[in-house]
Amino acid sequence: MIVDTHLHIIDKEALRYPWLEGVPALNRTFSYEEYAREARRGGISDTLHMEVDVDPADIEPEIAYVERKSAEPGSLLRGKIAACRPEDSDFPAFLERQRANPFVKGFRRVLHVVPDDVSEDALFRENIRRVNGTGLTFDLCVLPRQIPKAIALADLAPGVQFVLDHCGTPDIKGNAEHPWREHLTEIAKRPNVAAKISGVVAYADPDRWTVDALRPYVEHTIRSFGWDRVVWGSDWPVCTLGGGLSTWIAATHALLSGTSVDEKAKLLSLNAKRMWSL
């Protein structure tokens, strides 16, 4: 069975998502129920919800919304990676509130949608250090050219388990491997960073990609981090831009053809269960 560490729920009636106006293909409600029906058919047994860059005023309402969904009978939801704003002075109080909620498993601040210097700000870095020792993870969502900034954060807080989303978001459609390849090799040297094999179909040519187009990027990520520091994620519904959930699951199994049962189990479920105490 598969642990999906990267599900987005979009409910436009409940929460606000300013960025969706610029992405027409995703600018609608994508419900948990729509996801769960397909996820169960694909072998997904457990799911972590990943924040959807809601309006800042909706960050904590989003947590409560997903937690309510998790309480429904038969729900696949096991926890929440919450949005956060380490650049804000009220982050310490926010952090303490989330530490008190066992449903919250970690945080993410999407960095490729803000100026590069946001993560270099003294307050941002001070607040990242505050996550040390909490047991909460921090997802890094950056462009390939920004991976050095992610490296700086990982070095700053060695007690935080960081997770590099989407294999470092390589430009698969453009067949661009540099500087992504070198930067990925470098960040993988940090023992407190894991990599998420997630949603890379969204970065490939939506009409022409094949498993072989994905293979160099996925295999370099796994080879760099090793089987004990990789987890799997759907990035649904963003993955619908490259074929959808079932297509990505099928591609994953094809990419893992020839690997051992133990290696598959680590990537698809065991590492995630250990990292987030699921």
Score class of each variant (00 low, 15 high):
Met1Ser: 10
Val3Phe: 11
His6Val: 02
Ile10Gln: 02
Ile10Pro: 00
Asp11Thr: 15
Ala14Glu: 12
Leu15Trp: 02
Tyr17Trp: 12
Glu21Ile: 09
Gly22Pro: 01
Gly22Ala: 11
Val23Ile: 15
Leu26Asp: 01
Asn27Ser: 07
Asn27Tyr: 05
Glu34Ile: 02
Arg41Tyr: 01
Asp46Glu: 15
Val52Phe: 05
Ile59Tyr: 07
Leu76Pro: 08
Arg78Ala: 05
Gly79Cys: 02
Ala82Val: 09
Cys84Arg: 02
Ala93Leu: 04
Leu95Glu: 08
Glu96Val: 12
Gln98Phe: 01
Phe107Gly: 08
Phe124Ser: 00
Arg125Lys: 14
Arg130Asp: 11
Val131Gly: 07
Phe138Arg: 05
Val142Leu: 10
Leu143Glu: 15
Gln146Val: 01
Ala152Met: 10
Leu153Thr: 06
Ala157Asn: 06
Gly159Glu: 13
Leu164Tyr: 02
Asp171Lys: 01
Ala176Thr: 15
Arg181His: 12
Pro191Ile: 02
Ala195Asn: 09
Ile197Cys: 12
Ile197Leu: 14
Ser198Lys: 00
Gly199Tyr: 02
Val201Tyr: 03
Asp205Cys: 00
Ala213Phe: 02
Arg215Cys: 06
Arg215Ser: 14
Val218Asn: 04
Glu219Ser: 10
Ser224Phe: 05
Phe225Pro: 10
Trp227Ile: 10
Gly233Met: 08
Ser234Glu: 11
Leu245Cys: 05
Ala250Tyr: 00
Gly258Tyr: 08
Val261Thr: 14
Ala265Met: 06
